[in-house]
Each structure stands twice: as C-alpha cells, then as structure tokens.
C-alpha cells in the first residue's frame, strides 16, 4: 500500500515541504479532511486550535497537558484527543487509533503536522524534483528494500 502526498508551500517563498492528505474523526463520527505537513522532527501528531470546534472538543471539559516544547523551550498547552486518523489510496485505506494533540492557543501552530508517532509506521520516500511523496507500508516496503539492495550491489560493482 502506498499513500501519495505532494510538495506544497508552508509560507511565502519558503522551501516546498512534503504534505499528505488524511482525515481525522470528529466527536460526531464525521471525517474531517486535512492536509498534513510531514514533520519527522515532531514526536507526535498535532493540530491547530481552529480544529477544536470542527472536532467537537469542549475546551472546558477537556484535559489539558503542556509537555510539548519547541523553539524557545516554551511549554504549550494542548488537548490529547483520542480519535482515528485515516489514510486513503487507490481503493485501500489504513486507519490509526491514536491520540492527537490539539493546541488550545491559536499562535501555537497554524497547520496540521504529522509526526513520528504515525510516520514511524511507514517508509517515507520523498523527491522534490519529481514532486513525489510516498508513504509506503510494510508489504511494499519489503519490495523497496529488495530493490535498494539491488541498486547497492550494482553501484558497488561499478
């Protein structure tokens, strides 16, 4: 199974970054489509505060945590939201049961980020020039690794 993403902009004139589409299940069971920045520097998957209403999160009833740190070392508040994350491909889907952090402050984050909690389940193949962003699962990963072995053997013989 290969889930395909795309390179896209994050801000004015910044280097393009890899994104992938995935859906998050809201409290009312509806799926919310989001375009996630793939962030291998992030330990977890996080959403901006603007998704709180869409996901049906009640701030006054939620448990708030603040063990996330980033640049500047500040600890920012987020709500751990137990939900599902769905990836779709050409007829196949993969659903993760997980906890996603939803920040409570607008300035904490502006776009959804997909961290290593999820990305460690995939092999990531990225190539900006080909606009190729592939999230490869276990079965296809083995094919890829065999192919990589062949390339390595070929290169070492040259």
């Amino acid at each position: 199974m290969i889930f395909k993403g795309r390179y896209s902009q994050t801000n004015w004139n910044n280097p393009l970054a890899p994104f992938v589409e995935a859906s998050v299940r809201a409290a009312d069971e509806k799926w919310i489509d989001m375009f996630f920045l793939i962030d291998l520097g992030a330990d977890g998957t996080y959403l901006p505060s603007k998704y709180m209403k869409e996901l049906g999160i009640q701030l006054e009833e939620a448990r708030i945590e603040n063990d996330v740190t980033g640049v500047g070392g500040q600890r920012v508040e987020y709500i751990p939201f137990i939900t599902q994350l769905k990836f779709e491909s050409n007829g196949d889907l993969r659903i993760f049961d997980l906890s996603i952090g939803v920040f409570t402050q607008e300035e904490s984050l502006d776009i959804p980020i997909l961290g290593r909690d999820v990305m460690n389940f995939f092999t990531l193949l990225c190539d900006l020039k080909a606009n190729l962003v592939w999230l490869i699962d276990e079965a296809d990963r083995m094919k890829l690794l065999r192919f990589c072995d062949e390339i390595e053997r070929h290169v070492s013989q040259v």
Binding site: D43, G44, R94, F96, D97, L98, G101, G115, D117, V118
Partner: peptide, 12 residues
C-alpha cells in the same frame, strides 16, 4: 501522542 492500533480496509 501515541498510536494504539492500526487496521487496513478497502474503499467502496
């Protein structure tokens, strides 16, 4: 954040 389980399926 943590992943508890993963499942696969087919789309209609």
């Amino acid at each position: 954040m943590a992943v508890f389980s993963v499942k696969t399926g087919k789309m209609s």
